[in-house]
C-alpha cells in the first residue's frame, strides 16, 4: 500500500514520500487507446449486422483453441508482470528481474501461436482480402499484435535495466509501473478480441 515509504530515493518525488500514488500519465494513452479499440469493436459489430451468416461462418473457421491458449498466456504474463511490480516496490532487484524474465518467456508464446495461426490461415488461402470478416480479423489482431510487440519491447528493456541497477530507484519503479499498466491493457483488449472474434462463432 504505502509504496516507496522505505525507498531511500523517494526524496525528490514528494508524492512518493507522502505515500500517495503518483498519477501515471500513461493512463491518458490507455484511455485514448481503449476508446480506439471500443470504436473498432463497434464498427466490427455494426458491419456484422449486414452479413451475420458470413461473419459467423468465417469466425467458425478460426481455431478457437489457439485463441484460448493465447488468452491463458496473456493472463499469466499479466500476473507475472504484476508480481514483478510487487517485488520492485519492496526493493528486490533479483526477484523483479526473475519475474520479468518469466513474464517475457511465457508471453513470447503468444507471438509463436500468432505466427502459427497467421501462417496456417494464409496457407489455407485466407487473407485480409478473403472477406470483410477476415479484413477485420487481420486488422484487429494485427493492431493488437503491434501493441503486444511494443509491450514486449518495454518489458525486455526493463529486464535488461535490472542487470545494471543494484538498488531500485523511484524512477525505475515508475517506468515499470507504466509498462505494466500498458501490458495489462494488451491483456484486457485481448479478452474482448477473443470473445468477439473467436467465441461468437464457435457453434456455427
Amino acid at each position: 500500500m504505502h509504496r516507496g515509504k522505505d525507498l531511500p530515493d523517494a526524496l525528490g518525488r514528494p508524492e512518493l514520500a507522502a505515500g500517495r500514488k503518483p498519477f501515471q500519465s500513461i493512463w491518458i494513452f490507455l484511455v485514448a487507446d481503449s476508446v480506439s479499440f471500443g470504436l473498432l469493436f463497434l464498427v466490427f459489430m455494426v458491419e456484422r449486422l449486414g452479413q451475420p451468416v458470413l461473419f459467423a461462418e468465417s469466425a467458425h473457421r478460426l481455431n478457437a483453441l489457439l485463441g484460448l491458449g493465447n488468452t491463458l498466456i496473456l493472463i499469466t504474463g499479466s500476473w507475472l508482470v504484476a508480481l514483478a511490480v510487487a517485488a520492485c516496490r519492496v526493493g528486490s532487484v533479483d526477484r523483479t528481474r526473475r519475474r520479468l524474465v518469466a513474464a517475457i518467456v511465457v508471453s513470447s508464446g503468444f507471438a509463436f501461436v500468432k505466427i502459427f495461426e497467421y501462417g496456417s490461415k494464409v496457407g489455407d488461402g485466407i487473407t485480409p482480402l478473403t472477406n470483410d470478416f477476415y479484413t477485420f480479423y487481420y486488422a484487429l489482431t494485427g493492431f493488437h499484435l503491434l501493441h503486444y510487440l511494443t509491450g514486449m519491447g518495454a518489458l525486455i528493456y526493463l529486464a535488461v535495466l535490472t542487470v545494471r541497477v543494484h538498488e531500485i530507484e523511484a524512477r525505475f519503479t515508475l517506468w515499470l509501473e507504466s509498462a505494466a499498466l500498458f501490458w495489462h491493457v494488451v491483456d484486457l483488449l485481448w479478452i474482448f478480441l477473443f470473445a468477439m472474434l473467436y467465441l461468437l462463432g464457435v457453434q456455427t
Binding site: S25, I26, I28, F29, A32, D33, S36, V43, F44, E47, P128, L129, D132, T135, F136, Y138, A139, F143, L146
Partner: peptide, 27 residues
C-alpha cells in the same frame, strides 16, 4: 494528454495499411 493523444492517433494510422486491400467497407 495532448502528448499521449498525438502518440495514440499517430500509431492508429497503422490501420491504413489495410486501405489498399479493399474498395468497400470500414477499412
Amino acid at each position: 494528454w495532448v502528448c499521449w493523444l498525438a502518440i495514440c492517433v499517430g500509431i492508429g494510422f497503422v490501420l491504413e495499411v489495410f486501405m489498399p486491400l479493399v474498395t468497400d467497407g470500414a477499412f
